[in-house]
């Protein structure tokens, strides 16, 4: 059974529907102690990094204890950012610190449009919303069967740095980590539950890892 941690950040409906579509057994733990029988743990998230404050010491300890017992952990969007040391979005709110580095605000920028129409300068806005390509930097079980260049759906303003833990990067005026993995810890900046077949494949890969 996969534990889907509900800490009140946004709604879990979409993630639950996607997990149901790939026939994953999922439960929402009511207390940290309920993680003790999780075959894998998913920390979703949308919105502001400070929402992760609801994941207090008891939740952190239970998640880390389950990892220590060899069970995998997947962070989605803000849930992935939380795996790092922290985020500029909420500097007084520490992350779990399993991955080195801190999340930063995307700066956006401009690009040259293919046409010399009314305005040849295109704008790369922040938030970064929409479908963007994964650029694979190394192999990992979480991306089994996913081709470099596959597009996935993002919606965020803050991002994690590209480090040795990065499996796939993405570009939005600057590179950032879009998939990370270190040991049994994985994270995706985009929304696999909203990224069509590619997203479902990544969720399936996690379910396999948690078997």
């Amino acid at each position: 059974m996969i534990a889907l941690v509900d800490y009140g950040a946004g709604n879990l409906t979409s993630v639950r529907k996607a997990l149901a579509a790939i026939a994953a057994d999922v439960y929402v733990p009511a207390t940290p102690a309920d993680l003790s029988h999780a075959s894998g743990v998913i920390v979703p998230g949308v919105g502001h990094f400070s929402a992760t404050r609801a994941l207090d010491a008891a939740w952190r300890d239970a998640i880390i204890a389950r990892l220590g017992e060899g069970r995998p952990l997947l962070g989605i969007c803000v849930g992935m950012q939380w795996l790092f040391e922290g985020s500029a979005e909420a500097p007084d709110c520490p992350g779990l610190g399993l991955l080195a580095g801190s999340c930063f605000r995307l700066t956006g920028g401009t690009y040259r449009q293919p046409h010399d129409r009314a305005d040849a300068t295109g704008v790369l806005k922040v938030p970064h919303v929409g479908w963007n390509a994964l650029r694979m930097t190394r192999d990992a079980a979480i991306v089994d069967g996913v081709a470099s260049g596959s597009q996935v759906y993002f919606t965020h303003s803050y991002a994690a740095p590209v480090t040795g833990d990065t499996v796939a990067a993405a570009e939005h005026a600057e590179p950032f980590a879009s998939i990370v993995q270190r040991g049994q810890v994985s994270g995706v900046q985009f929304h696999p539950e909203k990224s069509g077949e590619v997203g479902l494949r990544i969720l399936r890969n996690f379910i396999e890892i948690a078997r």
């Binding site: 979409s14 759906y153 909203k194 990224s195 069509g196 479902l200």
Partner: peptide, 8 residues
């Protein structure tokens, strides 16, 4: 629609 489509 949401039951079977996994796009926004």
């Amino acid at each position: 629609v949401a039951q079977e489509l996994f796009i926004p």
